[in-house]
Write a protein that binds this DNA or RNA. Structure first.
Length: 568
RNA sequence: UGGGCGAUCGUCUAAUGGUAGGACAGUGCCCUUUGGAGGCACUUGUCCAGGUUCGAAUCCUGGUCGCCCAGCCA
């Protein structure tokens, strides 16, 4: 019964190419006395999602494993998209995942240094101010198959470049009128090397530097130099930046600064899940979801609110592995590791989502018994609690069938089942409403079966959860399903959009659920297993007198599978 | 049709010239006071064609297929 679960610990240290590479560099002291140094470099233009969790686990996890340190560095070079709200949420989410940074850094901290280095490159004849419009620059860049051509401004004198760049910085020119470009090779087969833009003019207020700057460095000019300033030894990023690596190296070599190195790995993709910041922002802005932390969102804040745990997310990320292939991991794997984690830690409770009244005709009117129930059968140290039992209780509508199908072991007329931790009961009759729906089931109980076993040793096929009607508390229950109906949400027909794949039934709200009284004391962040139903947690929307529970995940339901197969 | 990267069970991922293994999913059985959990078993794979080698997922050659790049985004 007890699950020691060696698998999740093995999974955390399984071989992968980045671990091998860093292990080797640490062993050979490739960077001399310098320790392994990494960084996690989010742009504060959105909330972190589970794809970022992979990068975080790699950046922080691998550094830690080899005695290194990790900085959290905000890649805040574009004031038009970045906000303090995101800076705050990102820090919260990284900590929630269980990591702590060595230093909190901002690319914007390096604006003065970056500017000095730009002057240095201009003086070395390696950068120039270009007056071409954005449109013209695109035309001059050439195409994938044709080389570009030099800008007419490419051969300005160093003096003129210096003067113009300083005046750009001084705010003499309007947005978009000029840029600073690296002078590399307009005929390079790698478009990133065709005189990339280093600085653009943006008269925008930055969330940290305010109006101190009106020129902002581009990613390519800022990122590698920021790594270098921080003595980052292993700069890990996703595959789409592989083409930028020659440029990353070029700036570092021209400047002769600390030789940080970039390594690329594959992005995390999960079936039925959208992991694009831009599209997640769209879902929020168009109110397709209730916010960044909507429990259906793949954001870390969404997972947190949904009841997912950082431990499970980390185990999943490790289990999904890292490579250089692009694929999509089954969402079932994530759910598996989450159930595995919750199964070990969640307190059990009884809750009836769709109540059906069960009256025990031969149980004494007005009598209340307290039955002892284990808080977690997986963990004896979790203790027990007392749950009230009485003559009228609620059971799940699904747990009674007037005409039971084959292999249906639950309650039906004449059948005996066990009420968990309480008594054996046998259904005797039903009460129906005008429409013919069963609204009440009458049964008899065996007083000798208290605790759930009969002294004569007879067996029952089924055990059901229940809640005493007089003692039940009410709650709103929010059931979540996949946000998208397609394994690949970005696969939509011509002329459509990923929104067409939104699952209209991703949220179902139940208002009449009946819970055992102990659940009134549930705390935010505390995981529960509602026995036979699923894992749940209290939602922050809970208010005085109004409990709201989120379903984190359902329990695997073998009967549902049997029924589905029979129907199919 | 320029450049870069990649291809191993349905999915994700190991094997670094020497027995193709694990996890998830699936199937069957056992167990069960959660039809949960757990246990056991089974199925399925090296993109293709050549070559090197005693031996190839791994090395070589040629194909095929997929992803990324033409932002003053990151």
């Amino acid at each position: 019964m007890t699950n020691t679960n060696p698998e999740s610990s093995d999974v955390l240290t399984a071989s992968n190419f980045l671990r091998d590479l860093i292990a080797e560099d640490a062993r050979t002291k490739k960077f001399g006395a310098a320790a392994i140094q990494t960084r996690f470099p989010p742009e504060p233009n959105g909330y972190l999602h589970i794809g970022h969790a992979k990068a975080i686990c790699l950046d922080f996890g691998l550094a830690d494993e080899f005695g290194g340190k990790t900085n959290l560095r905000f890649d805040d070079t574009n004031p038009e998209k970045e906000e303090q709200e995101y800076v705050d949420s990102i820090q919260q989410d990284v900590r929630w995942l269980g990591f702590e940074w060595e230093r909190l850094c901002y690319a914007s901290d390096y604006f003065p240094q970056l500017y000095e280095w730009a002057l240095q490159l201009i003086k070395a004849g390696k950068a120039y101010v270009d007056d071409l419009t954005a449109d013209q620059i695109r035309q001059y860049r050439g195409t994938l198959t044709e080389p570009g051509k030099d800008s007419p401004y490419r051969n300005r004198s160093i003096e003129e470049n210096l003067d113009l760049f300083q005046r750009m910085r001084a705010g003499e020119f309007p947005d978009g009128s000029r840029v600073l470009r690296a002078k590399i090779d307009m005929a390079s087969p790698n478009l990133n090397m065709r005189d990339p833009v280093m600085y653009r003019i943006l008269h925008a207020t930055h969330h940290r530097t305010g109006d101190a700057w009106c020129i902002y460095p581009m990613y390519d000019y800022a990122h590698g130099q920021s790594d270098s300033i921080e003595n980052v030894t292993h700069s890990m990023c996703t595959l789409e930046f592989a083409d930028h690596q020659p440029l990353y190296r070029w700036f570092i070599e021209q400047l002769g600064i600390f030789p940080s190195q970039q390594f690329e790995f594959d992005r995390l993709n999960i079936t039925y899940t959208m992991l694009s910041k831009r599209k997640l922002l769209q879902l929020v802005q168009e109110k397709r979801v209730r916010g960044w932390d909507d429990p259906r969102m793949p954001t870390l804040s969404g997972f947190r609110r949904r009841g997912f745990t950082p431990q499970a997310i980390r185990t999943f990320v490790a289990a999904a592995g890292v490579s250089r292939t692009n694929g999509s991991t089954d969402v079932e794997m994530l759910e598996h590791f989450q159930r595995d984690d919750l199964n070990r830690r969640a307190r059990r409770a009884m809750a009836v989502l769709h109540p059906l009244k069960l009256v025990i005709d031969n149980y004494p009117e007005g009598q209340v018994e307290l039955v002892e129930v284990a808080n977690n059968p997986e963990d004896p140290t979790a203790g027990t609690r007392q749950v009230p039992f009485s003559r009228q209780i609620y059971i799940e509508q699904d747990d009674f069938r007037e005409a039971p199908p084959p292999k249906y072991y639950r309650l039906s007329p004449g059948k005996e089942v066990r009420l968990r931790n309480a008594y054996f009961v046998t259904a005797q009759s039903v009460v129906k409403d005008a429409a013919g729906n069963v609204v009440e089931v009458h049964c008899t109980y065996d007083p000798l079966s208290r605790g759930g076993n009969s002294p004569d040793g007879r067996k029952v096929k089924s055990t059901m959860h229940w809640v005493s009607a007089a003692h039940a508390i009410s709650a709103e229950i929010r059931l979540y399903d996949k946000l998208f109906t397609r394994a690949d949400p970005s696969d939509y027909p011509e002329g459509g959009s990923f929104l067409d794949n939104l699952n209209p039934h991703s949220l179902e709200i139940l208002s009449g659920a009946k819970l055992e009284p102990s659940l009134a004391q549930a705390k935010l962040g505390e995981p529960f297993q509602f026995e036979r139903v699923g894992y749940f947690c209290l939602d922050p929307d809970t208010s005085e007198g109004h409990l709201v529970f989120n379903r984190t995940l359902s329990l695997k339901d073998s009967w549902a599978r049997i029924e589905k197969k029979a129907g199919a």
